[in-house]
Simulated assay, not measured.
Amino acid sequence: MMSSVKVECVVKESCLIGEGPVWEESEQTLLFVDIAGQKIHRWSPTTNHIQSMETGAMVGFAVPRRSGGYVAAAGRSIVAVDWSSRTTSRLLEVDQEKPKNRLNDGKVDPTGRLLAGTMALEERPAVLERKQGALYSVTSDLSVTKHFDQVDISNGLDWSPDEKVFFYIDSLALSVDAFDYDTHTGDMSNRRVVYRMAEGEGLPDGMTVDVDGRLWVACYSAGRVICIDPETGVRLQSVSLPVMKTTSCCFGGPDYSDLYVTSASLGLDQSESRQQPLAGATFRVTGLGVKGRPSNSFAG
């Protein structure tokens, strides 16, 4: 299967920290953010055209909203995004007692509930005050629940195809964890490790789940995306990319068989930048022989 896998750079515009790719089925576009560049991007594979807007704060993620537009993480705030006017309006704020925190990755569960995590501001990539973050959920009426704290870098999250398991990454823990998940209440319990990163696999960052329930995890500082069977804890596949700081991934394309992978350029020295001219670009991986699922939209 690996012999047919192809990796191509599709968005050459370099991001300081490209993150949170989401495939928009209705628009057939890829939505992603540049965290440190404080921008939200939309790229069309049909026209190869990219549209962007500035957020005025570090932006951890952007996801579609059922009522139109998007919701995004800007600093410690969840904001509504009006794409036509390129403006944002604040809906709520988390970690009010921690002004040196920010929101990082976020995703919407099968019922339309938004889950989003926080972390301390970094001194440099992956160097920060530890145990300052938390994981929150936001319901359609904008009620906020804190599920747990003592998080270092709240990162990848997704759900099993049967919606009964929630997968979660705290990057510096070097593991992918699972919880039993109740989609009706949003409650999560029975936390356990389903995969521990091996030597040379870097930090687990963004993540997506395919239709068969396997996890695809971007490995920051290791230049790859790995596929994990959460039932056995076995790595099934590894896809190498021409950049070291792979940050996140999602499935997209007309039949969700393309894997889109974001990357970062922030923190590279001159030598590393010369060796990785595509650092910060976005890539498309084809020929994996698997498919992903449509993303969920926030119900609020």
Rank of each mutant, 00 (worst) to 15 (best):
N101F: 00
N101K: 04
R102K: 13
R102H: 06
R102A: 14
L103M: 15
L103F: 11
N104Q: 01
N104I: 01
D105F: 10
D105K: 07
D105P: 11
G106Y: 05
G106C: 13
G106R: 03
K107V: 05
K107C: 12
K107Q: 06
V108F: 14
V108K: 10
D109H: 12
D109A: 14
D109S: 11
D109I: 12
D109M: 07
D109T: 12
P110C: 01
P110R: 09
P110T: 06
P110Q: 03
T111I: 12
T111M: 13
G112S: 08
G112Q: 11
G112E: 07
G112N: 04
G112D: 10
L114N: 08
L114E: 08
L114I: 06
L114P: 02
L114Y: 04
L115D: 04
L115P: 07
L115Y: 09
L115H: 09
A116Q: 07
A116M: 08
A116E: 02
A116N: 00
G117T: 00
G117I: 04
G117P: 04
G117A: 07
T118M: 13
T118P: 05
T118H: 12
T118Q: 08
M119I: 13
M119T: 12
M119A: 14
M119E: 11
A120H: 15
A120E: 15
A120K: 01
A120V: 14
A120S: 14
E122R: 11
E122K: 05
R124S: 14
P125A: 03
P125K: 05
P125R: 02
P125H: 03
A126H: 12
A126K: 13
V127S: 02
V127P: 01
V127D: 12
V127H: 05
V127W: 00
V127F: 03
V127Y: 07
L128E: 10
E129I: 03
E129W: 00
E129Y: 01
K131H: 12
K131W: 00
K131M: 10
Q132C: 09
Q132F: 08
Q132T: 06
G133Q: 03
G133F: 12
G133K: 13
A134T: 03
A134L: 07
A134K: 00
A134F: 05
